Simulated scan of single mutants.
Amino acid sequence: MKKSAVILLTGLSILLTACSKMPKECEQSWEHIAVIAKKSGIPDDAIETQKKEFERNVQEMPKDKAIEVCNAQNSIFGLVK
């Protein structure tokens, strides 16, 4: 059951981030963050709040800077796996 909830949350995250016009690198970064948050037992409403903050921060950056930051995050998440 938990695995299906994580898959559902990830799918929802992908769908919602696609609507926000975030760079795909940042979408991937958010997916990693959401999975880790869910595994840590963070409530869904807190995850949604963090997602909105993440999107706001990404949108405030120039696109090339946002991609650079998100690529760095993705590299770190790759090491954590």
Rank of each mutant, 00 (worst) to 15 (best):
M1F: 04
K2S: 13
K3M: 10
A5F: 04
V6C: 14
I7C: 13
L8M: 14
L8H: 13
L9V: 10
T10S: 09
T10D: 05
L12D: 08
S13M: 10
S13L: 06
I14N: 11
I14L: 12
I14F: 08
L16P: 05
L16K: 13
T17L: 06
C19F: 08
C19H: 06
K21Q: 07
M22V: 09
P23M: 06
P23E: 15
E27F: 06
E27Y: 05
S29A: 15
E31W: 03
H32I: 03
H32N: 14
H32E: 10
I33N: 11
I33M: 05
V35L: 07
I36Q: 15
I42H: 03
I42Y: 06
D44K: 03
D44W: 00
D45C: 07
E48C: 05
E48W: 02
T49F: 00
K51A: 05
E53F: 01
F54N: 05
E55S: 00
R56N: 03
R56G: 01
R56W: 00
N57S: 02
N57T: 01
N57P: 00
V58T: 01
E60I: 07
E60N: 07
K63D: 10
K63E: 10
K65Y: 01
I67P: 00
E68P: 02
V69D: 03
V69N: 01
N71T: 14
A72F: 08
Q73A: 05
Q73K: 10
N74G: 04
S75K: 15
F77M: 11
F77S: 11
L79Q: 12
V80C: 09
V80I: 13
V80E: 01
K81A: 07
K81E: 05
